[in-house]
Design a protein around this nucleic acid. Structure first.
Lengths: 216, 216
DNA sequence: ATTATTTTTTAGATTTGTCTAAATTAAAAA
DNA sequence: TTTTTAATTTAGACAAATCTAAAAAATAAT
């Protein structure tokens, strides 16, 4: 059984692994709002418990055991987010901090019953996939355009916002279903995205990119 | 803002206050599964924060501030118990440990929305009253017979178990609505209760006593 | 290839909540 | 009232998770 703090480290390492593997001490320190020295201490502890592979000065990777634990935390976090939005009428921007606490409640029965109560949701309110109890993610054939990295390509397969003004905006830009796009640049300053579509270059805000669903 | 541990102490002190006031160090130690020395340490800390009144060797009482905090924890605990039983189909005997964790999640919005979602329940699955956000308990005109102390009297005003075998059992014993009873003795060994009813003496199990509702 | 810079680690201290063992106070018994 | 017993507190230590400051290693720059 892991402590609250250990679980937090595992979760952060899991998320950072997607971006770069192995994960650096400083990256963890920044995300967890602590000092690099503290991270080193905790990593040693997690390494002794065989939850991470640790080589001095080389950063960490999760072991199978650590990864499974991390995915389970992510599962709990996202299920609670669904609960908060769908049952308690939270706004999507209000759920994160609360889910951050709820995710650490251990009862297996609680999580399975919650999953059932929510009718086995496959994605959380932000469109992120919810793994099952064995750590498997449903193979969602789409992901948000905002999750693509520079030079990645994809086909527009849906939207997650159905308001008329939004759809009209996409139409004007030529961003309609079935169109093939490539991310040519992500602007650091505001997170906006430069796209290549039919040899034209267009720019869309981060907000818009979040609501466009892509399959590769 | 209090820590998880501080909250637990306040909650336990609150519950023990009902039985004896001020509350003794040893009583807290036993309930919280720790040593008397640790309790003394924590009490000093709570006293500095003006959550309890503490006089050396005399035990503790809650201050207004401490009492309000404690009642709020009780509120959260009982609301979560209702949620677990009514929405997630937990059995009444499965809820306590989980609610023990859930009660420490701080978000005020969460608790108010949960209350609303559950349609403002007045009692938890065990019949214990749920205070409102200001710490006021609905003046329930009944309480469980099992909560009466020796020599206390009351009138039977309801039951919290409606199965046919149970009701037949009560009828046979003469324990019907409107009857006046007095607790003559509580047997330590099994928690069973000896009652005086219409000058007869009868004995009922703790289980049965729990499901009989009384008004004084 | 050396030097400079950044990143990471070590060493030692701090805080929170706990513990044991000994000392103190209060309560009960003689 | 004195003695015995029980409850409580103090003193000092410990584990978890953190910190600062200094040392060591890796990376980047010249």
């Amino acid at each position: 059984m892991q402590s609250f703090t250990e679980e937090n480290y595992l979760k952060i390492i899991y998320h950072l692994s997607v971006i770069s593997n192995p994960v650096q001490t400083n990256a963890i320190a920044e995300r967890i709002q602590t000092k690099a020295a503290s991270v080193t201490d905790m990593i040693k502890k997690l390494s002794e418990k065989e939850l991470v592979n640790y080589v001095k000065y080389q950063g960490v990777t999760l072991t199978e055991k650590g990864k499974l634990t991390a995915i389970n935390i992510v599962r709990r976090h996202r299920l609670w987010e669904v609960f908060l939005v769908e049952k308690l009428n939270f706004k999507w921007d209000q759920v994160h901090e609360v889910a951050e606490e709820l995710e650490h409640i251990k009862s297996i029965l609680l999580v399975e019953r919650l999953d059932e109560f929510l009718e086995f949701p496959k994605v959380d309110p932000h469109g992120d996939p919810i793994p099952d109890q064995y750590g498997n993610f449903a193979d969602l054939s789409f992901l948000k355009l905002s999750k693509l990295k520079t030079n990645e390509k994809g086909t527009i397969t849906g939207v997650s916002e159905h308001s008329s003004p939004f759809l009209k905006h996409l139409e004007k830009l030529g961003l309609t279903l079935g169109k093939r796009i490539e991310v040519s640049e992500i602007i650091d300053f505001d997170g906006s995205v430069e796209l290549l579509i039919e040899d034209r270059k267009i720019n869309i805000s981060k907000e818009v990119a979040k609501h466009i669903l892509i399959s590769k």
